[in-house]
């Protein structure tokens, strides 16, 4: 029988033994649940005595968007310290002298961290039953949303891991990860809207390449988690560019998340190697071994 990866086993043991884990889970459910119940309460207050089924869709959208933002908050927090934390505890060097490959270390860290996020998401499933109670939602939408969460979580977690491998300090790594996640969720959306506005204000003939601008806007909105989620929920069509990227939006988003995530994980594993390869690897090599020498 295949043995579970030792780093994964250790991480799961450590993570699920902590009292903090249970508190975090409770806090997560309390926040999401409170959000949904508050939404229902406010709707009920505004129109007492009856419940409109189309409100289910609103709750579903609210719940899903809230969950996305909580994921954007939790996933980086869990992963941005996985390597830098080992470095700060001075356990990384010992780990690197074992026979485990750096890829195996990075991958196990990712799985262990995201396992908890998956637990968080599964724990929220009963909240979705509130939505189904009143109808108005296609059954296929929930798996679609959860698939979206998994992909997004993979990307956010990979960002956290590469930052924790690159930066020596967990504080810097965490801040940078949150910055990048914010750029990915909010920044690209704003950029897409801004570029659309640029294209609208300027006449097409004054632009260097209007086709390219539309392509960029389309790419940005098909890789922006908020735009994609709203599209899955059929709540928003997004910006109309008239450009096709060749594949359905969900396929483009899947390729983007998996491709970029795997690339970041591969880079993380390279950062852990003593062999410097290129400027960024050299920088990380110096950092990952403290100030280089000590005695």
């Amino acid at each position: 029988m295949a043995e579970i990866n030792p780093v994964l086993l250790k991480e799961l043991r450590q993570r699920f033994r902590r009292g903090k884990t249970a508190w975090l889970l409770a806090l997560y459910l309390f926040t999401i649940g409170g959000f949904v119940l508050a939404f229902i309460y406010l709707n009920w207050q505004s129109a007492p005595g009856y419940y409109q089924p189309n409100r289910s869709l609103e709750i579903f959208i609210t719940l899903s968007v809230a969950q996305l933002f909580l994921l954007a908050f939790v996933a980086p927090g869990l992963t941005a310290s996985v390597i830098s934390g080992e470095r700060e505890r001075q356990t990384l060097n010992v780990l690197l002298t074992t026979r485990l490959s750096t890829w195996s270390i990075v991958w196990s860290k990712l799985v262990a961290s995201t396992a908890f996020v998956v637990v968080l998401m599964i724990a929220t499933l009963p909240l979705y039953s509130i939505v189904f109670l009143y109808g108005g939602i296609a059954p296929g939408q929930v798996p679609g949303v959860f698939g979206f969460y998994l992909l997004t979580m993979f990307l956010f977690a990979s960002l956290g891991i590469v930052c924790s491998a690159f930066f020596q300090r967990t504080g810097v790594s965490t801040l940078t990860t949150y910055g990048l996640v914010f750029a990915l969720t909010g920044g690209t959306g704003f950029l897409a809207a801004f570029l659309t506005e640029v294209g609208r204000i300027n006449r097409p003939e004054t632009l260097v390449n209007p086709g390219f601008l539309n392509w960029v806007v389309e790419f940005l909105q098909q890789t922006n988690p908020v735009f994609v989620l709203l599209k899955i929920l059929a709540a928003e069509d997004g910006i109309q560019t008239g450009v096709s990227l060749g594949l359905p939006y969900w396929a483009n988003y899947t390729i983007f998340c998996l491709g970029l995530g795997l690339l970041l994980l591969f880079w993380s594993s390279r950062l852990l190697l003593p062999q410097p390869r290129g400027r960024f690897f050299r920088l990380a090599d110096k950092r990952s071994h403290g100030d280089g020498f000590s005695g």
Partner: peptide, 17 residues
């Protein structure tokens, strides 16, 4: 790595193990 056992000058602690 299979031939050596390395002990650094500082013992890093894994919490909860």
């Amino acid at each position: 790595r299979g031939l050596i056992g390395y002990m650094p000058d500082f013992f890093g602690v894994y919490d909860g193990l």
